[in-house]
Design a protein around this nucleic acid. Structure first.
Lengths: 225, 225
DNA sequence: ATTAAAATATGATATTTATCATGCTTTTAT
DNA sequence: ATAAAAGCATGATAAATATCATATTTTAAT
């Protein structure tokens, strides 16, 4: 198994603030795991007892609503950490993580991360910074959900995925989601998403090829009401 | 002016993890301020360059939506800190703070808090814990906003204010909000809030006396659909 | 390759919520 | 004390969205 010291991915998360010795310790106790597309990495309420570092693949973090629908709260890509929030609060996780394509993740046990949080202030501060960013994005999401129409929210979801995760060589969004996933991001019925996407396509705002979506008119998408 | 070392309110926030010397330093550079009901403590986009400690009163944290409506993201009461998120991210604030009744706040300049964040790991860890809790609540709010009806959201807002901030001797919610404020929590039109509250009253779920509200049937409020 | 299952698509209709209008009540300012 | 403003209340109507039904297309399993 490869070592954390040499892993380039840590540049994309707080682990870059660990010392060589701390990284060696983590390397020695970490485990590695493959999660296939559609499979759960963990479920809401699980005590995960550690954090995951995403080596490859993409997953969605969801929360089950009382009405039985999943709400997608965040998309996580290669390089990011998952589980810091629950770890810091020392409680079981409030979200489920499901692979959107085949994933490879490393698991670092709680005691090791907690030790670093207590001993390495640079690391703690960076975890704090990441969480502050997450909180800001969550605040924005609350406002969007509360104040904007389904149409606007869907347009913004497309723009967000475009801006945050980019496109492939054909200009297609790299993150490929089902209509149901989009409904679970926007908080609406799957049929509504299908209808609105059809409309966007008819109006030339997007192009689709199966599940793949390409943004054709970003300016117009930003103006959607 | 009273000193931070003796201030009982710090027991309710992360400042309790500061050492005596750190508290003395903060006492020496802090300033104090009165903010009248309805007045702004700071506005979205302001560079506040420090954090506030609420000594007395209650305020709402809001974010202006593109459609011109305010969204209430959080209510802050005596004892809590405001502004940690922006401070940690080293950016101007993403929220506005408005006093819901007369407030007294202490202001601690950024350089002093940053120094403590860098030097006192216990303090940093507690700030991290508080932010983790805020993030969890924000995630819950996202799900509620996205998946629940206006009726449900309003019922939950009442239950939340009841549980988090309590009641006076008559059983009235201690936090008194206008119908418009409720609309800005729930993300709906003020008329809709008025209508639904009238219905709740007619159905015996709540009682009202002017702007004051008493929850009469918590079980039924939890069952609202 | 074929069948079953899942995802997408679209229409018809019901429900929820917003908007506009108007009147009443309470609070605030002078 | 009184006027003006702000907040509350309710009806009528419009707009947005959900739900149910059904058909088609795509994907997965054998």
């Amino acid at each position: 198994m490869s070592t954390c010291e040499q892993c380039i991915l840590k540049q994309f998360n707080s682990l870059k603030y660990l010392t060589k010795e701390e990284l060696v310790r983590i390397s020695d106790c970490k485990t590695s795991k493959i999660v296939r597309k559609g499979q759960l990495l963990f479920n809401e309420g699980d005590l995960i007892n550690g954090i995951f570092c995403v080596r490859d693949g993409i997953c969605k973090l969801t929360k089950l609503s009382a009405n039985g629908k999943d709400q997608i709260v965040k998309l996580v890509v290669k390089g990011e950490l998952i589980g810091q929030r629950s770890l810091v609060s020392e409680e079981s996780t409030n979200l489920s993580a499901t692979a959107l394509n085949d994933m490879q993740v490393c698991f670092i046990p709680k005691y090791e991360v907690m030790r670093d949080l207590h001993e390495n202030n640079d690391f703690t501060l960076d975890v704090l910074k990441v969480m502050a960013k997450d909180l800001k994005e969550a605040d924005n999401l609350i406002v969007n959900m509360a104040q904007k129409s389904v149409r606007q929210r869907l347009a913004e979801a497309l723009l967000y995925i475009h801006a945050a995760f980019g496109t492939d060589e054909d200009g297609m969004l790299t993150i490929v989601l089902s209509r149901e996933d989009y409904a679970n991001i926007v908080g609406t019925a799957t049929e509504s998403v299908i209808r609105i996407l059809s409309q966007f396509k008819k109006d030339g705002l997007i192009a689709t090829k199966g599940k793949q979506i390409r943004l054709e008119d970003i300016t117009a998408l930003k103006r959607v009401e």
